[in-house]
Amino acid sequence: VTLFVALYDYEAITEDDLSFHKGEKFQILNSSEGDWWEARSLTTGETGYIPSNYVAPVD
């Protein structure tokens, strides 16, 4: 499982989006939707859509 880490803070715009803070880690559930990925936060356990350009793979 490839994990991703937030590079910036993000505040949800719609109820389907997931708010997060810089440094938060995610498991990507679906990355086939283009620039918005469905993800689960490993910090909160919540799922929602995140902007793919706000995250990077964890080394």
Rank of each mutant, 00 (worst) to 15 (best):
F26G: 00
Q27G: 03
D35M: 14
N30V: 07
P57L: 08
Q27D: 07
A56T: 10
N53W: 14
P51S: 05
L29S: 05
L18M: 13
L3E: 08
V55E: 00
V1D: 12
D16H: 15
D59P: 12
P57F: 06
P57M: 09
A6W: 01
V5D: 01
A39R: 00
G23V: 01
S19M: 03
D17E: 15
D9Q: 05
F20P: 00
L7S: 03
Y49G: 04
G48Y: 02
A39Q: 00
G45R: 05
S32H: 11
V5S: 04
Y54H: 08
S32C: 12
W37N: 01
T2F: 09
G45D: 06
E33V: 12
W36G: 03
D35I: 12
S19Y: 03
T47F: 07
A56K: 10
G45Q: 07
S19D: 04
G45P: 01
K25H: 12
D59S: 13
G48E: 00
I50R: 00
I28C: 04
W37D: 01
G23A: 03
Q27F: 14
V5Y: 13
I13F: 09
T14F: 15
F4H: 06
T2G: 11
G48P: 00
Y10C: 04
W36T: 06
E46N: 12
T2I: 12
Y54I: 05
V58I: 13
S19E: 04
P51N: 09
E15H: 11
D17R: 15
K22H: 06
D35R: 10
Y54F: 10
K22M: 08
Q27N: 07
W37A: 02
L18H: 02
D35Y: 15
G48V: 02
E11L: 11
Q27W: 14
T47E: 09
S31F: 15
L29C: 08
S19Q: 04
A56R: 10
L29N: 05
T44N: 06
Y10G: 02
T14E: 11
T43P: 02
T44D: 03
S19W: 03
R40S: 05
A39E: 00
L3T: 09
S19A: 06
S52L: 05
T2A: 11
E33I: 11
G45L: 07
A6F: 01
V55F: 09
Y10D: 00
A12I: 01
K22Y: 05
G34F: 10
A56H: 08
E33Q: 14
D16N: 15
S41N: 13
I50A: 01
N53S: 15
Q27Y: 15
F4A: 09
T44W: 03
A39T: 02
N30E: 07
D35T: 13
V55L: 11
N53A: 14
F4M: 08
G34D: 12
I13G: 11
A56I: 13
R40T: 12
R40L: 13
L7G: 02
A56V: 14
H21G: 07
E33G: 14
A6L: 01
R40E: 05
T2L: 12
E11I: 14
F26Q: 00
F26S: 00
F20M: 09
E11M: 11
D35A: 12
N53I: 10
E46P: 01
V5A: 05
R40Q: 09
R40V: 10
E38G: 05
E11P: 04
Y8A: 09
T47P: 02
G48D: 00
T44G: 03
V5H: 05
A12Q: 06
E24I: 02
N30M: 07
V5Q: 07
I50D: 00
D35V: 12
K25C: 10
D59N: 12
S31G: 09
E46M: 14
E24T: 08
N53Y: 10
V5P: 00
Q27I: 15
K25W: 13
A39V: 12
K25D: 02
D59Q: 13
A12V: 02
P57R: 09
E33T: 14
P57A: 09
D17C: 14
F20A: 02
E46C: 12
V58E: 10
V58T: 07
Q27C: 11
A6I: 01
V55W: 01
A56Q: 10
S31Y: 13
E24C: 06
D9L: 03
A12G: 12
Y8C: 11
E38A: 08
W36Q: 07
S31K: 12
V58N: 06
E33N: 15
I28D: 00
Y49M: 14
P51T: 02
E33D: 15
V58G: 05
T14S: 15
T2M: 13
N30A: 08
F20V: 04
W36L: 09
E15K: 14
S41I: 06
T43E: 14
F20R: 00
L7C: 07
V1Y: 14
W37S: 02
N30W: 08
E24H: 07
D59G: 12
L29M: 08
E24M: 06
F4P: 00
G48K: 02
Y54A: 11
D16E: 11
T14A: 13
Q27P: 00
E11K: 11
E33S: 14
S32P: 10
W37Q: 03
E33R: 15
G34A: 14
K25V: 15
I13C: 12
I50P: 00
Y8T: 06
E11A: 10
I13S: 12
G23K: 02
V55Y: 01
E38S: 09
P57T: 06
E15I: 11
I50Q: 00
Y10W: 11
I13K: 14
R40N: 04
S52V: 09
D17G: 15
E38Q: 14
A6D: 00
I28N: 01
K25P: 05
S32W: 10
E15V: 11
E24R: 01
D35K: 10
L7T: 04
Y54G: 05
G45K: 05
V1N: 12
I50K: 00
F4T: 03
Y49I: 08
F20T: 03
K25S: 06
E46H: 12
D9H: 06
K25N: 07
N30C: 09
F26P: 00
S52Q: 07
A56Y: 08
L18Q: 03
T44S: 09
S41M: 06
D17I: 13
D17Q: 15
D59R: 09
K25E: 08
H21K: 15
L18C: 02
S31H: 11
